Amino acid sequence: MYHLELSEKNEILQEMIQIRRKIHADPELSTQEYKTSKYIQSILQSMEVHEYILCDTGVVGLLEGGQQGKTIGIRADIDALSIQEKNDVSYISKNPEVMHACGHDGHVAMALGAAMILKKWQKNIKGNIKFFFQPAEEQYGGAERMIQAGVLQNPTVDAAIALHLWPDLSKGTIGCKEGPIMASNDRIKITIKGKSGHGAMPQTGIDALSVASTFYQAVQQFQAREINPLTPAVITFGMLSAGTSYNIIPNEAILQGTIRTTDEAVRDQIEQRLEQMLKSICEMVGATYEWEYARQYPVTNNHSSIVNLAKESAAMVFEKDKILTLDKPYMTAEDFSYFTQEIPGAMFFIGTKDENYAYPLHHEKFNFDEKVLLDGALFLALTAVLFLES
């Protein structure tokens, strides 16, 4: 019932490669994906899949099966990154300082490839497949905006899946995990206010840089001694700016960083304790502070029922020993997490690493063997039909 001839697979793969390369050569940043969304629309229209624009640059496609039933969503993010590409390929980005370095061009191609496959099986499908071509994953949380705009309604979506190209795993593998698979992502910015003074007379000032340094060291102690070592948590300060001259006591210091964890209670603990520590340290020396703490993407939690079902479909595409059960989450973050907060869902990783393609995500030379696109599209399509029949 759900079968493709080798010639059909090859034809779909070639179409996906063409789609991927066109999108790769003309990448667009978060919320600016106008040409990308129009191109996706044109592909869906050519397949006679009902489509419409949502949230300015998002695209929704609806493929209705031959029989009534449930609805599953297949999500693909479509935005690019602010990176100058350094690959030597014919389809290199033509847009300065913009590149698909996180595989979103491949995600679009795999979702559209799944649509091509499902279109061939349409009359036998019991239910609907809704495609979410989502803008602004890298910034601004496009998933949350699409949900607020009603992407999970009309018809009501019962579950959602997503597939991410993953150079941390070997080509030919797929990574699955129940529960947390990616961390939450919070941003912190602290401005410490002291008092300027002559560098030779430090007693006349309040050294904001010294306060920042003391706070930074206190954070390391807090992470090592107050957070359960069995609970994944990362506190990284990547920016510190202070001072105007080598011989002036800085009256201001600014620290900026990111906080990642897979546990909401630990997330609360970190936010509360960091401000408590900063307040105490500032009070000790007479400094003040401004506190900015932004909760960004939540934890991406994979639902066990979807993961177990997807392992069945993975067995139809991948060799048995290539279906990997991941034992630890990644501390990167994903706004697909907003979907799994609303409905059962799961994200999976398709491996891309080999001797020719070993650069990580967000690297100016990230690339992958495009043959993996066919495995990804088949996996998405088969997982969709298995869910609708379950």
Results as ranks from 00 to 15, higher is better:
2 Y>A: 05
3 H>Y: 10
8 E>W: 05
11 E>M: 06
14 Q>A: 05
14 Q>G: 00
18 Q>N: 02
18 Q>D: 01
20 R>Y: 00
22 K>N: 08
31 T>E: 01
35 K>Y: 01
36 T>W: 01
36 T>P: 00
37 S>W: 06
39 Y>M: 01
40 I>R: 07
41 Q>M: 03
43 I>N: 00
46 S>W: 07
50 H>I: 05
53 I>T: 08
54 L>K: 01
54 L>H: 00
55 C>K: 03
61 G>M: 02
62 L>N: 08
66 G>M: 04
66 G>R: 03
67 Q>V: 03
70 K>C: 12
71 T>Q: 13
79 D>W: 02
80 A>D: 04
82 S>N: 15
86 K>T: 10
87 N>H: 13
88 D>K: 15
89 V>N: 04
102 C>H: 08
108 V>A: 02
110 M>R: 07
111 A>Q: 04
113 G>R: 13
122 Q>E: 14
123 K>V: 14
123 K>L: 09
126 K>M: 06
130 K>T: 03
130 K>W: 08
138 E>Q: 06
139 Q>K: 13
140 Y>C: 09
141 G>L: 09
142 G>N: 08
143 A>R: 09
150 G>A: 15
158 D>N: 15
162 A>K: 11
172 G>S: 11
176 C>A: 13
177 K>E: 06
178 E>N: 15
181 I>M: 12
181 I>Q: 11
182 M>P: 01
187 R>V: 13
187 R>F: 14
187 R>Y: 15
200 A>N: 12
204 T>H: 13
205 G>P: 13
206 I>M: 12
207 D>E: 11
215 F>Q: 14
216 Y>Q: 09
219 V>Y: 11
220 Q>P: 01
220 Q>D: 11
221 Q>W: 01
224 A>H: 02
228 N>Y: 07
228 N>L: 08
228 N>V: 10
233 A>E: 08
233 A>R: 02
235 I>V: 15
239 M>Q: 14
239 M>C: 12
240 L>C: 15
241 S>E: 15
242 A>Y: 09
259 I>M: 12
261 T>E: 09
262 T>F: 03
264 E>K: 12
265 A>F: 06
266 V>H: 05
266 V>S: 11
266 V>W: 13
273 R>H: 10
274 L>H: 11
277 M>L: 15
278 L>G: 14
281 I>G: 10
283 E>I: 09
285 V>D: 01
289 Y>D: 12
289 Y>W: 12
293 Y>R: 07
294 A>G: 02
294 A>T: 12
295 R>F: 10
297 Y>F: 15
304 S>E: 13
306 I>C: 07
306 I>M: 10
309 L>D: 09
310 A>Y: 06
310 A>F: 14
310 A>T: 08
311 K>P: 04
311 K>C: 06
315 A>V: 06
315 A>L: 08
316 M>F: 06
320 K>R: 02
322 K>L: 00
329 P>Q: 02
334 E>C: 03
335 D>W: 07
337 S>P: 04
337 S>Y: 02
338 Y>E: 01
341 Q>W: 03
342 E>K: 04
348 F>K: 04
352 T>C: 08
352 T>L: 06
358 A>D: 05
359 Y>S: 10
360 P>I: 03
367 N>A: 06
369 D>A: 10
369 D>R: 08
373 L>Q: 05
377 A>V: 11
377 A>M: 12
377 A>W: 04
379 F>V: 13
380 L>F: 09
381 A>N: 12
384 A>I: 14
390 S>P: 05
